[in-house]
Design a protein around this nucleic acid. Structure first.
Length: 846
RNA sequence: GCGAAAGUGGCGGAACUGGCAGACGCGCUGGACUUAGGAUCCAGUGGCCCAAAGCCGUGUGGGUUCGAGUCCCACCUUUCGCACCA
């Protein structure tokens, strides 16, 4: 009986589906465990790179099931978004139809991988049953002042014809399409995430089971800075200008001030300047630049002709405008300390502004400003204040402390905390998203849609032209509305929400997904959440995870949930890469067109370059699972995917490597066939299937149970599988039934179909439903003998074998009663015993 | 520039608190079975050496230790994140 996965896998998938094995009653008692894979955008076909994410989650889920946990493992669809709309424009198919078809396709793929989800909990964010609660959530935030409409310079993607959140702009480009992002001054909807900046930052410390890397990325993104706000009097303007600095200790070295060109006091300041027109033209140029252009044009500035007074030195210092000062951060104004800030230093050198040293190295001498090649930025005890009046001689941290207290005493300002984080821009000028439930009434202004009128349904019959503007804005039936306050005519908001709003709370909906009366049941949610294990890609380290943490806190503050952090454990799997081929123009070439000569890729006569990158459709390097499964089965793909590398690491897909997983399963299969008596033994002598297992097999079995269990818990799937391969190799020498059944159980999370079939073949019933995870007997794991290495004066003298009892003292007794060792040791030598449990035992003689 | 992680055979990778480096798998070499094999099975496979013995081997250079892939110091390289955030 040959191992033919395609003959058996669909059968088991059908049985699991019919039995609803993964469906769980959230009101039933049990040792709850909420597992969650980030719900995907339904883009169509999944490839083996996507598979890694879900296979990993399923292996873990099956493991916890077998250990008796009441595990919830739901799945849904992040179903709003731009690609559906682009498909509508390109192929004249409605976004909804396109999305639902993709969902059907992907659901089949999940099933074909043997992944068990509780489909009774399925949600799709594009359905009114879901997005009405998105709208409800928005109204609650609006009520609390956490959602507001404001005018601000925003990121505009000319390609996608919409505004973007700061988080969606990468290197000055649209994260989605790569187009250069423009700055536009627009009135838009924001969520006040900045109000939670301090709590989002502090909360990171409580996330013990999150990758450090993700926490660090979030911390950097929030960008908490301690410093001081200080007022500098400006006689010519009539009121002081407030600056923010993280280095108030350097205030005696502030020799000029720089304002962002956008600073509100600028027009007044330059009104009587002789070169006003030139300055205004320059300001216009800077304001129209994208963030990227602004940075790439280097440091530029203009002198306003006005002076501020340094409140500590009482000197008049010139006020400049500088393109490197950002209007959105701090107060949009800085005191410049060129000696100790690299940006200020460059600016001062460029425009010949004075440089004054106010910090010198501790225990050393300062330098002359003229000799400086760069700013000296001492941030810790390595720097000491000089030329700074009351703080002279103090190391930097102490100096900061003292100067802030002086600033506060003199009423010049105060110590403050500033954040880099900005409010979350959620308006999108696109169709396929949740309509923002707001109205514009001529009489009453902005009016929220009453909760009982939700959902504001997205109309399905709208024109898709692909030209500028949101299709909703061209749909009068949608726009025309009645004001709930005055019954007069009102205009409906046509912006839709960023799809990251949808995904910022979906994990709360999964426990009571069909509740039509409320967003979720607080009692049930408090029992099941936070999510115990969240699994997804590192690309969401900031965006999704930060938004979800923010929304969770707002719901907590509304009294709807008892916790502030949504995800207890987070795991980020690495991407799967594969070689792709590029022609001279940088265009990707299909692997089917590639010919090999001297191990180098060509197309026709043209030499190609090979590049290993993340699997993606556009790079033509995806491996579709269908073909692979048809040939080797889903179990092979599952085992290979988990075996290929540690799951958090990037892994290179190898078509040849797959065969190793297939062979392994084939050997396990063959052994099962022989043990069950279902087929003839291959060798001349039939193994004694019912005979007692050999001691070395029993030992290996317990060692393997122990290793696989702890490795799964630590996400070391690759070595868990290698331990199973080792066990299978040992077992093949002397097959017997009991250890073989243990092997099947341990293998089940990775290769569920084959193990079910073999389990049944042995006369057992329903592995996934009935069997429990084996437990290792530590006493039986012990090796019977230990090799003792004896070193004398650093040289290996020899090795002897002794019985290996568990306790240290008995090992040592065994060692020193050994005649051979006694003859090596002379009376003069000092004996040092080194006992390493389960490992080599050394005796060192000096 | 700042921050973080990582450098081990031809390849993916193992080695938990320092204790037999290279587990497991791919590939490769030889063999068996075959009309055939890109199926399956067996054996071998870090380097030097015909072989044995032996020596050398975890990015580089130092150090600690009876013993270092693992710890410490300096450096090199790669990847990732942030990037005028005052």
């Amino acid at each position: 009986m040959q191992y033919r996965p395609t003959d058996i896998e669909p059968k088991w998938q059908q049985r699991w589906a019919e039995a609803g094995v993964a469906e769980i009653d959230v009101t039933a008692p049990g040792d709850k465990l909420y597992m969650l894979n980030m719900f995907p955008y339904p883009s169509g076909d999944l490839h083996v790179g996507h598979g890694r994410n879900y296979i990993l989650g399923d292996a873990l889920y099956r493991f916890f099931r077998m250990r008796g946990r009441a595990a919830l493992n739901p799945m849904g669809w992040d179903a709003f978004g731009l690609p559906a709309e682009n498909a509508a424009i390109k192929n004249q198919i409605h976004p909804r139809q396109w999305t639902l078809a993709n969902i059907q396709r992907m659901k089949k793929q999940f099933a074909r991988w043997g992944i068990l989800y509780d489909w009774s909990k399925e949600i799709a964010s594009c359905e009114p049953e879901y997005y009405r609660w998105n709208q409800w959530l928005f109204l609650q935030l609006y009520k609390r002042g956490l959602a507001y409409r404001g005018t601000a310079p925003v990121n505009w993607c000319p390609q996608d014809q919409t505004v973007l959140a700061n988080e969606q702009v990468v290197d000055g480009r649209c994260e989605r399409c790569g187009a250069l992002v423009e700055q536009r001054e627009l009135s838009q909807w924001f969520l006040k995430i900045t109000e939670y900046a301090d709590r989002l930052d502090a909360g990171l410390d409580t996330l013990e089971h999150w990758p450090e890397k993700v926490k660090l990325m979030q911390r950097n993104w929030i960008g908490r800075s301690l410093g001081a706000d200080v007022d500098f009097p400006v006689p010519s303007v009539g009121h002081p200008i407030r600056i923010f600095t993280t280095r108030p200790d350097t205030i005696y070295g502030a020799t000029f001030m720089v304002l962002a060109p956008e600073h509100p006091d600028v027009p007044k300041m330059i009104a009587d300047a002789h070169d006003r027109e030139e300055i205004e033209a320059w300001i216009t140029t800077v304001r129209n630049q994208s963030a990227l252009e602004r940075q790439e044009s280097g440091k530029e500035g203009r002198f306003t002709g006005k002076y501020a007074i340094n409140p500590f030195t009482n000197e008049e210092i010139p006020i400049w405008l500088g393109n490197f000062v950002l209007p959105q951060y701090g107060t949009g104004a800085i005191m410049s300390v060129p000696a100790h800030d690299q940006r200020d230093f460059e600016f001062a050198r460029q425009y010949g502004l004075p440089i004054r040293i106010v910090v010198k190295p501790a225990g050393g001498d300062g330098v002359e400003p003229n000799d400086m090649a760069e700013a000296f930025t001492f941030k810790d005890e390595s720097g000491v204040s000089v030329n700074s009046g009351p703080i002279d001689g103090l190391p930097v941290p102490k100096a900061i402390e003292k100067i802030i207290s002086i600033i506060e005493e003199r009423g010049l300002g105060k110590g403050t905390v500033r954040y880099r984080l900005r409010d979350w821009l959620i308006s999108r000028q696109r169709y396929w998203g949740t309509p923002i439930p707001m109205l514009y009434c001529e009489k009453d202004g902005l009016v929220p849609v009453p909760e009982e009128e939700l959902p504001v349904r997205l109309p399905l019959d709208v024109p898709f032209t692909g030209r500028e503007g949101n299709p909703l804005a061209k749909t009068p039936e949608f726009i025309e509305a009645t004001c709930p306050r005055c019954n007069g005519t009102a205009r409906r908001e046509t912006d839709t929400m960023d799809t990251f709003v949808d995904s910022s709370w979906y994990f709360l909906r999964f426990v009571t997904p069909r509740d039509e009366s409320k967003i979720f049941d607080s009692e049930v949610v408090n029992r099941w959440l936070p999510v115990d294990q969240y699994i997804g890609g590192i690309e969401h380290a900031i965006l999704h995870l930060l938004y979800a943490r923010f929304i969770t806190r707002t719901l907590h503050d509304m009294g709807l949930i008892a916790f502030e952090e949504p995800f207890t454990r987070l795991f980020n799997q690495g991407v799967i890469t594969k070689e792709g081929y590029k022609d001279a123009n940088g265009a990707w070439v299909s692997p089917s067109e590639v010919e090999w000569r001297d191990e180098k890729p060509y197309r026709g006569g043209e030499a190609l370059t090979a590049e290993v990158t993340k699997m993606s459709k556009s790079r033509l390097n995806v491996v579709p699972p269908d073909e692979l499964i048809a040939k080797f089965g889903a179990d092979t793909e599952r085992v290979y995917t988990l075996f290929i590398a540690p799951p958090e690491k990037e892994a290179a897909w190898s078509d040849e490597g797959v065969i190793g997983a297939y062979r392994f399963l084939g050997r396990v299969w063959h052994m099962g066939v022989v043990l069950s008596g279902a087929g003839p033994a291959s060798g001349p002598e039939k193994p004694a299937a019912e005979a007692a297992a050999a001691p070395q097999v029993i030992r290996k079995m317990h060692q393997t149970i122990d290793a696989v269990t702890s490795r799964i818990e630590r996400f070391e799937f690759n070595t868990a599988i290698s331990a199973l391969m080792e066990f299978s190799n040992v077992l093949a020498e002397a097959p017997s039934r009991e250890p073989y059944e243990a092997l099947l159980k341990l293998l089940h999370p990775f290769a569920p179909h084959a193990t079910e079939e073999l389990w049944e073949m042995l006369g057992n019933e329903g592995l996934v439903l009935t069997s429990t995870w084996p437990v290792a007997d530590r006493a039986l794991m012990q090796e019977e003998t230990a090799i003792i290495a004896v070193q004398i004066n650093g040289k290996l003298r020899g090795q002897v074998e002794v019985p290996a009892p568990a306790e240290e003292q008995r090992v040592m007794d065994a060692v020193f009663s050994n005649e051979k060792i006694q003859t090596w040791i002379t009376g003069k030598e000092i004996v040092k015993k080194i006992y390493v449990p389960g490992k080599l035992v050394n005796v060192v003689v000096k």
